[in-house]
Design a protein around this nucleic acid. Structure first.
Lengths: 241, 241
DNA sequence: TCAAAAGTGTTCCAGTTACACCCATGA
DNA sequence: TCATGGGTGTAACTGGAACACTTTTGA
């Protein structure tokens, strides 16, 4: 009887295939000025010279994918403990002009205030761009962005990921704007507040907005106790749903 | 001013990294005898000799990931037009004893009747195993299976993917058993039927079960017209949600 | 006192859940 | 006639959607 053939044939056969490079590309989302933004570079490689590109790097030989994504985030933003989740692999044969480079996409959620504090020195050249401005990008990065945004939208509805994007203290209008920016649709204010308050994971901090030319909004923070009870997985990283 | 560094540095630097192999592993789901099953092989490689493994292969140099998955499905089952969706990439450095082999997991949904008709000659050695029996597997394949099953559960609730698993004619109890098998929980019969009938995507075929020692169930088939109207994307392949 | 945005409840509809009995068939 | 699973409806509950006015602040 014929023996079942496995994926894993012979050393030589595999060695013939050890020709690909693996990279990780990160879609680093931030929320600022009521817009959802992505941290980008200007591509310095033909034929994509000047096009916005995602932040990525080749995966080192002794490095897992999650580790590579974490490293890239740290190298580029100076931030540790970033929320990261793998999106999927992109492996079109012609996606990279230099040869076969399979990339694994991750999305990351960071607070732009953390980036401003830690990131500027390391992130020279990196620019926040609104997702609405990102139409043409280098390589297949627009495709990667679209997939990541699609996943983020699903996740945002399922889990309180917005806390990863907002500053420590935030107002309900800010939170609602974040939802509207990510989901690209408007939400009823009263229904939104009802739903958020039922979750019970935010609490008033007893302060108000300052320097606004209208009635200041109350400020809230995440209720860490409730968070640990209901969403402890959000404290781990990377996040597995 | 420092120039922004891209992922894509210099040819030589990338060439130093062209050392990895890329494989695709398929979690091929089938539904038979009221159980959710996965097509597996017995691993022929130490240290996993005899452990169940998924069906996979190395990706060829001129082959995209989706193409590789489709090819593997065809080579192993003889079936074309298989429903396939990428799960994610698995890239632990130590996941393969031969070296750095990044694998991209796909799940596939096939009708076991199609496999029986087309597949046996090609699928020598492949075995259907119930997911409940698959505790230890070769490599990180149990991990891959778990992720795939998790995704399948989400998809099954969102979309009528069950039609990819059932034979052309099926009964409502069969359909409900499929849900219960995949989701691993029992469902109220009346509520289930109410929901299915409201979808409107199945229709009676005017036949009944035969050779059952009790009241025979009516047989149904997918209403192709309604399917095209509401779920045309299910007719494309691979599926992008 | 005005402009601007914050804050606040109720009603309705739809979808989900819980639940128990009769029916058709083969043995 | 019995055993086995197939087939059916209603009532309560829950979550989501629609909707308009008052309040607080700075200018």
């Amino acid at each position: 009887m014929e023996i079942a053939e496995n994926i894993n044939l012979h050393m030589r056969e595999i060695e013939d295939h050890f020709k690909a490079a693996i990279s990780v590309d990160c879609v680093i989302f931030g929320y600022d000025e009521s817009e959802l933004k992505v941290l980008t570079l200007d591509c310095n490689m033909e034929p994509y010279l000047g096009f916005p590109s995602l932040l990525g790097d080749l995966v080192k030989n002794d490095e897992n994918l999650d580790e590579a994504a974490t490293r890239i985030l740290f190298e580029r933003t100076g931030i540790t403990d970033v929320f990261l989740e793998q999106v999927k692999a992109f492996g079109e044969t012609d996606r990279h002009p230099m040869g076969r480079v399979l990339t694994v996409a991750y999305y990351a959620l960071i607070k732009v205030e953390d980036y401003r504090q830690n990131g500027q020195p390391r992130g020279i050249g990196a620019k926040w761009r609104s997702i609405s401005q990102l139409n043409e990008m280098a390589f297949d990065h627009k495709n990667i962005l679209d997939s990541s945004l699609h996943l983020l939208r699903k996740r945002l509805i399922e889990y309180p990921l917005w806390m990863k994007l907002l500053p420590k203290h935030f107002s309900l209008p800010e939170l609602q704007n974040l939802f509207e920016a990510v989901l690209a649709k408007s939400i009823d204010k009263r229904n939104f507040r009802k739903k958020i308050s039922k979750l019970g994971i935010i609490k008033e901090v007893g302060k108000k907005q300052e320097d606004v030319p209208h009635r200041p909004a109350k400020l809230y923070a995440v209720n860490e106790k409730k968070l640990r009870e209901d969403y402890s997985f959000l404290l781990k990283n990377p996040f597995i749903s």
